[in-house]
């Protein structure tokens, strides 16, 4: 979505613009947020955080901010930062003292550490590639289960299978993925 398209939509209807941006980027934002809050936030925390992010984005629209054609980049940055704030807040609420060296925090400015990220990027690529190699519906099951923290019942509903079938497929897919990763020579540490 370009700045021009954004302005056009804003001129037509603010809410329509909001909805269009939301529909286009909600899955992207949700994926970023869940990657940060997966292990500490409830589903409600995650949705709350996603809505906070869109609030911030909408308010930037009001300010006629120039996104220089990189709206997605802007959304990604706001998403990561907001998710990290939520991560801190949730942990503070839970009386958890969070060391700033938490792995989650390490991700934030990772784009500035290109050298260190090269390996990580390669591992990520291999991991996702191996998950794709599982074939459908196993790839979707693994992603939904492990990346999105979805329950077997939710997954079952989304791919029109029974919960029991999802669990069985998941169990087999996990074993297969484990073998594929070891075959790929990347071990498990750092990934799993």
């Amino acid at each position: 979505m370009t700045d021009y398209e954004l302005r056009e939509l804003m001129a037509e209807s603010v809410q329509k613009c909001h909805r269009a941006v939301f529909d286009k980027y909600c899955n992207y934002v949700y994926a970023i947020v869940i990657n940060v809050l997966r292990n500490c936030g409830s589903r409600e925390d995650i949705e709350d955080c996603v809505s906070d992010i869109f609030l911030k984005i909408y308010k930037r629209f009001d300010e006629s901010t120039d996104f220089s054609g990189n709206l997605k980049g802007f959304i990604g940055t706001v998403s990561r930062n907001t998710a990290i704030d939520a991560f801190r807040r949730i942990n503070a609420t839970n009386n958890r003292f969070v060391s700033i060296d938490d792995e989650i925090m390490e991700e934030v400015r990772s784009d500035e550490r290109l050298e260190e990220n090269t390996e990580k990027r390669e591992l990520s690529r291999i991991l996702l590639g191996k998950i794709r190699d599982l074939g459908e519906p196993d790839s979707t099951i693994i992603i939904q289960q492990y990346f999105y923290n979805r329950t077997a019942k939710e997954i079952a509903k989304s791919i029109s299978m029974t919960s029991a079938a999802v669990q069985k497929r998941s169990s087999r897919a996990k074993q297969k993925l484990k073998a594929l990763l070891i075959e790929a020579g990347i071990g498990k540490e750092g990934l799993i």
């Binding site: 899955n27 992207y28 949700y30 994926a31 970023i32 990657n35 997966r38 292990n39 990604g76 792995e103 991700e107 990772s110 784009d111 990220n117 990580k120 990027r121 591992l123 990520s124 690529r125 991991l127 996702l128 790839s139 979707t140 693994i142 992603i143 939904q144 492990y146 990346f147 999105y148 923290n149 979805r150 989304s158 750092g190 990934l191 799993i192």
Partner: peptide
């Protein structure tokens, strides 16, 4: 919960596109 702990930003983008949830 640790499977994707080292996932790269680019791959997150791909996941969101290929596996919208």
């Amino acid at each position: 919960n640790d499977l994707f702990k080292e996932i790269d930003d680019m791959e997150i983008d791909k996941i969101s596109q290929d596996f919208p949830v």
